[in-house]
């Protein structure tokens, strides 16, 4: 377990750096999480993060395909925004659990 402090608020993280309580999320927390990876978030990134949070709260299973069909960004654009692991990184900064793929 790790922990970061944002605006005086203590945020609990998993070993992989994902928030344990998605309700603690706000934009400043997202910026701080990204900063820890030397990553800067723009408005385009936030559109994706907000979409992910909305879908997560609705109980949806999130996949790269689903984000690609969201109308917010296509898959190629998603890779450009979050290189190297678009769903892993975007989920992390959106404050939702690490995406699991079932076996």
């Amino acid at each position: 377990m790790a922990e970061i402090t944002v605006n005086g608020k203590s945020i609990q993280l998993t070993e992989d750096g994902y928030m344990t309580d998605p309700s603690q999320w706000d934009k400043d927390v997202a910026v701080a999480l990204a900063k820890a990876d030397n990553f800067e978030l723009t408005d385009d990134h936030f559109k994706v993060l907000e979409y992910l949070r909305k879908e997560y709260e609705a109980g949806a299973t999130l996949t790269i395909r689903k984000v690609g069909k969201s109308g917010i960004v296509d898959i190629k654009g998603l890779y450009k925004l979050f290189p190297g692991g678009p769903l892993k990184f975007s989920s992390k900064y959106a404050g939702i659990p690490k995406p699991t793929s079932c076996v």
Partner: peptide, 11 residues
């Protein structure tokens, strides 16, 4: 597309 040969760590 997964991050390893299988997703679950021990396997």
């Amino acid at each position: 597309p997964m991050s390893g040969a299988f997703t679950k760590p021990v396997a």
